[in-house]
Write a protein that binds this DNA or RNA. Structure first.
Lengths: 105, 105
DNA sequence: TTGACAATTCCATATTAGTCGAAATAAAAT
DNA sequence: ATTTTATTTCGACTAATATGGAATTGTCAA
């Protein structure tokens, strides 16, 4: 992943509301969470939430899937993996390597 | 590290100029890089660069040390470690864990 | 086919971020 | 002391982001 894209994705994680959304998405795993559930947890107006979700979608951090009248948000784990991979590639280029990354199968 | 602080730090990495600075800092390791060297690499006005550096300092991602008339910028590896640790803690809370984090001694 | 529910889009507004020239500060060299 | 080099702070401007009420779209149920 090139720098511009990584920066755009990090910027989306760099907002407390969106990071809180991200956290919920991670915990929900593959099946995702309904927008309404996220809203209840965060207690913010739906239009504000929608705005944040659309930003995250724009950089492919997550996607949505409709099921009846509820929309489920699911994290794109592969994109997250790319992003963390990018950060690690940068970190491991230094003289001191604070971590190693092990991708699980 | 709590969510607010993590978000603030991620936001600083979420800008292409600052992410490029971050990359240089990582590669430079403990001894750091001179502000002038960063500027030469990125080819941006010094006032713009200074502004970005002060933002990164404000969230403790880096610090400066003076040596004669040149200022060296050094990454706070421990803070980076905390930040990545936070992200990992979030990632590993899901039903599917994409990675494991191994901190090296 | 109307009503309720789930969520988005539209719109307006307030706040914050990003950029960069010019002036200021700090340290060394002449 | 003055100049040069290194970098920051100030000030002004523009662009982007964040927020939320109101109107809209999509889906189901009665």
């Amino acid at each position: 992943m090139e720098l511009e894209l990584a920066a755009a994705r990090l910027a989306e994680l760099g907002h407390s509301t969106r990071l809180a959304i991200f956290r919920q998405l991670v915990r929900a795993g593959r099946q995702g969470v309904a927008v309404g559930d996220i809203q209840q947890q965060l207690d913010i107006p739906s239009s504000t939430l929608s705005h944040h979700l659309s930003r995250m979608i724009k950089v492919q951090l997550m996607q949505q899937r409709r099921e009846g009248r509820t929309l489920y948000c699911q994290l794109n784990f592969d994109v997250l993996e790319q992003l963390l991979g990018f950060l690690y590639a940068e970190c491991c280029a230094g003289e001191r390597t604070p971590f190693t990354l092990t991708k699980l199968e």
